[in-house]
C-alpha cells in the first residue's frame, strides 16, 4: 500500500488544528448564510414590486454580484477599504461582508422566483377572506415560498460553504490554509502528506455539506 501521508494528521495537534480551520470556515459561512436568508427574503420581496426604482436598484445589485468574481469582491473589501476609507477590517469580517453581499443577491433572486411562481389566485382568495396585504404575505405567500425555496437555497448554502476556501487569500486561516501549513511544515518528514491532508479536507467539506443536503431532502418530503 502506498504511503498516503495520513500519519501527519496525528502528529502534535494537527487534527485539532485542521478541525479548528473547518470551524472558521463554517463560522464565516453560517453567519453569512443567516444574513443572506433574512436579507434575501426582504430584497426578494422588493424585487417583485412594480415600483420602477426598487426594480432598477435590485436589478443593478444582482447584476453586479453575478458579474464580479467573489475573489475580486474579497480583495476589494479587504484591501480596498483600508486604502480608501482607512478601515481596518479583519479578514473574517471582510469575508462575512462579501459572502453576505453575494448570498443576499442570489437568495433574493431565488425568493423572487418562488414568489412569482405562486398563482395570483392565492393572493385573491386571501384578499377575498379579508386578509390585508401584510397578512397575505405572512400567512399565505411566505410559507409557500419557503417550501419552494428549500431545495434551491440548500444548493446556495453548500456553494457558500465551499467558496469559503477563497478566504485564505485574504489571510484568514481556515481549513484549507491549515492544511497547507501542515503540509509545508512536514515537507521533509512526510513528503506524501499533500495527498492525505487534502483528502481529509475533502472529507471534512463533505461531512459539513452532506447533512444539509439530507435535511433538505427530508424537508422537501415532509412539506411536499
Amino acid at each position: 500500500m502506498p504511503d498516503l501521508g495520513l500519519e501527519v494528521l496525528f502528529k502534535g495537534k494537527n487534527l485539532m488544528r485542521i478541525l479548528g480551520g473547518l470551524g472558521v470556515a463554517l463560522k464565516i459561512s453560517l453567519i453569512s448564510v443567516a444574513i443572506s436568508i433574512l436579507a434575501g427574503v426582504l430584497v426578494g420581496m422588493l424585487m417583485t414590486w412594480k415600483n420602477p426604482i426598487s426594480r432598477a436598484v435590485t436589478r443593478c445589485y444582482l447584476e453586479i454580484v453575478r458579474i464580479m468574481p467573489q475573489m475580486v469582491l474579497l480583495f476589494l473589501v479587504y484591501f480596498g477599504t483600508t486604502r480608501i476609507f482607512g478601515w481596518n477590517l479583519s479578514g473574517e469580517l471582510s469575508a462575512v461582508i462579501v459572502f453576505s453581499f453575494w448570498g443576499t443577491a442570489e437568495m433574493a433572486d431565488l425568493v423572487r422566483g418562488a414568489i412569482i411562481s405562486i398563482p395570483i389566485h392565492q393572493y385573491e382568495s386571501a384578499a377575498a377572506l379579508g386578509l390585508t396585504g401584510m397578512q397575505t404575505y405572512r400567512y399565505i405567500i411566505l410559507p409557500q415560498t419557503v417550501r419552494r425555496l428549500i431545495p434551491l437555497s440548500i444548493n446556495l448554502i453548500t456553494r457558500m460553504i465551499k467558496t469559503t476556501s477563497l478566504v485564505l487569500m485574504i489571510g484568514v486561516v481556515e481549513v484549507l490554509k491549515v492544511a497547507q501549513q501542515i503540509i509545508e511544515a512536514n515537507r521533509m518528514s512526510s513528503p506524501n502528506a499533500a495527498f492525505g491532508v487534502y483528502l481529509t479536507v475533502f472529507l471534512l467539506y463533505f461531512a459539513a455539506c452532506w447533512p444539509i443536503s439530507m435535511l433538505a431532502g427530508y424537508l422537501e418530503k415532509r412539506w411536499r
Binding site: 385573491e124 386571501a126 377575498a128 379579508g130
Partner: peptide, 16 residues
C-alpha cells in the same frame, strides 16, 4: 371583504 364570501372555480385552498 370579510363580509363578502367568495368561492372560486378552482377552489384556491391554501396548499400548505
Amino acid at each position: 371583504r370579510q363580509k363578502i364570501g367568495m368561492v372560486f372555480q378552482s377552489y384556491e385552498l391554501f396548499p400548505h
